[in-house]
Design a protein around this nucleic acid. Structure first.
Lengths: 343, 343
DNA sequence: ACCGCGAGTGTGACCGGTCACATTCATCCC
DNA sequence: GGGATGAATGTGACCGGTCACACTCGCGGT
């Protein structure tokens, strides 16, 4: 069946050459649209290509050309809204630049597992984009062997443990600060905080922003609750907060957490925003449609992804190395879930 | 700086060989863990590898070995919960099998654009997995050139227009049927349906299942509303349904639509499930935490992704070709948003 | 002393393209 | 008429690995 005797169907450039009665180089010229090929020859080659179903082997091309035009995105999860949006942004920019994108999921934050995964991504060739919002990601960023082109998507540059590499970020600290101030300005005595897992040993940017606002206002500073990533964690934290009648405002590390808190408050019979105000972080697509709709901070995740790619692209192509900078200014979105405290 | 004169830092197998005073073949043996290498030699090579920071070039390896161990997932969106979960499932299975996974986003359903994207994915090498739940995906599946290993993730096999290729699916038709019957069994006179965009010219599997149940029950069959993919579409459809006092049960094509419907009913002052029951499809992670929590159908998306990869893997490795089969039985999850109709 | 054998190592070709350079041949110009 | 010019095409090496095979030992068996 396999006429050419090749691995998998596809004919090579030399098969085409033979069929068209020219040299392989002429075929190469044709498929690259090189000018100096006689019209009649070109047509003959094109016909042969068509007949043999030739398609240029990407692997060989990458090897010959020297560079692979590929980036791999390393992330703890593809399902989480923020992560998925970053990935989408990277893909968008990569596609525009003619790059292909790969994904690697960091299944566990375990040192060894992460290292293996980074290795795999590394020998996939091309550059690396690591989403380092969580422990697994941060560890992955650390595990990237020196000399490999990599860009980290981090919470904040200050908290980045691998200071000598490019990164992109949004100003989460400022956003959390602003949101906390907003809640305080509504008249709340203080604002409680339900945290996402911090990406580093130290505290997170969002936590910092919240703390700063609370301290500046001279308000009491309740210990942040750990909520994990999903609504389940938020729910647990929410039940705890609901028990404390002094709680009137809760800021959550992301919208999923906020959803869990909302639900817990509902179950505990504490109306939102009547008794308690709740705010989230991320502006996930469903947040506007919750009841009550969620006050939150809008982050431009796809923009972040695009910026990450742009940065990496600069490194890979050795063109003007784009300077790392905060990518976007998070925007407060005030909806129904926040309001004045009960009189 | 660049001692070896190579493209990008990394030393080749021959550089290592020179440094260790052996032939390149011996180096190859060492990095492949071949047995017959003298211990002392092995150590010398390993030392050289370490010193030069050698890492094996994936491109060259793929070329030499003949096959690339890569799959590309083509999808209209990475952000949507179901799609993202399928991707995650594919990645999981691919990783376990030593494959790398790429992503291509189909930005528009436009014929030409889709073709371009398929081309790109095709010459990325390896196999293809196309998520064909929507028009863009279906078109992509159609545009895959013959002879390319591809697996489609489709709504239902019957509605698959390219019948000669392997595919995976969940039995959405049955799931919609069951859910509709469930709602009818609660005493609702009929069930209205808010549809996701159908993947084909014809009607979709979910719509079919709904229709069948309604017809079997001899209930009136209201025309399905088109809702799009996101909560916004559901919201619009919901507002329309809210105006009709005879509406007491609404089945939605996915959970996002259901969320929009829920919101619309709330705005219209129609309590759920007091006056209207609402059911979704997918069991997205937030659906359990909505208020009211959402009755829905749980689909095993990651399992679907894993199955898609398994199928493709079988094709690629030419081992026992796994037979296409429905991957999982969707499961009804009854929560607060559904109940008896008002008396 | 000779052969066989297996451990340890090296050589050449190859995967499927690209690149740099060489070649052929018609044309143009002085 | 002869060299310069340039269009059209071919040749060889190369990218960085792998594979198939050949080679060189040292050693044991007969």
């Amino acid at each position: 069946m396999n006429v050419t005797g090749h691995t998998r169907g596809s004919a090579s450039i030399r098969d085409v050459a033979a069929a068209a009665g020219v040299s392989y180089q002429t075929v190469s010229r044709v498929i690259n649209g090189h000018a100096s090929v006689k019209q009649s020859t070109r047509e003959r080659v094109l016909a042969a290509i068509d007949e043999l179903g030739f398609r240029r082997n990407a692997t060989a091309l990458a090897l010959a050309r020297g560079r692979s035009r590929a980036v791999t995105v390393l992330t703890a999860n593809t399902t989480h809204y923020g992560y998925a949006s970053i990935l989408q942004g990277v893909e968008e920019a990569a596609r525009a630049a003619g790059y292909s994108v790969g994904v690697g999921v960091l299944e566990s934050a375990d040192e060894a597992a992460v290292t293996v995964e980074v290795q795999r991504a590394a020998d996939a060739g091309g550059g690396l984009i690591v989403i380092a919002y969580d422990p697994a990601g941060v560890r992955a960023l650390e595990a990237v062997p020196a000399g490999l082109p990599v860009v980290g998507v981090v919470e904040t540059p200050a908290s980045d443990p691998t200071g000598d590499r490019p990164w992109v970020w949004t100003d989460d600290r400022k956003a959390a600060y602003e949101m906390t101030r907003h809640l305080l300005s509504l008249g709340h005595e203080t604002v409680h905080y339900v945290a996402i897992p911090s990406s580093t040993r130290r505290t997170s940017a969002r936590t910092d922003g919240w703390r700063q606002a609370v301290q500046e206002a001279g308000a009491p500073e309740p210990p942040p609750l750990q909520g994990g990533w999903g609504p389940a964690g938020g729910h647990a934290a929410g039940l705890e907060l609901a028990r404390d009648p002094s709680v009137t405002a809760v800021l959550c590390g992301n919208d999923d957490l906020a959803l869990g808190v909302l639900r817990a408050l509902h179950e505990a019979g504490r109306p939102v925003p009547g008794e308690v105000s709740v705010a989230g972080f991320d502006d996930a697509p469903h947040s506007a449609y919750l009841t009550p709709s969620l006050t939150t901070v809008r982050l431009d995740f796809t923009g972040l992804g695009r910026a990450a790619f742009a940065l990496l692209h600069g490194v890979l192509e050795e063109s003007a190395p784009v300077a790392p900078r905060p990518v976007s200014v998070p925007e407060l979105v005030v909806r129904e879930s926040s309001g004045r405290p009960p009189a």
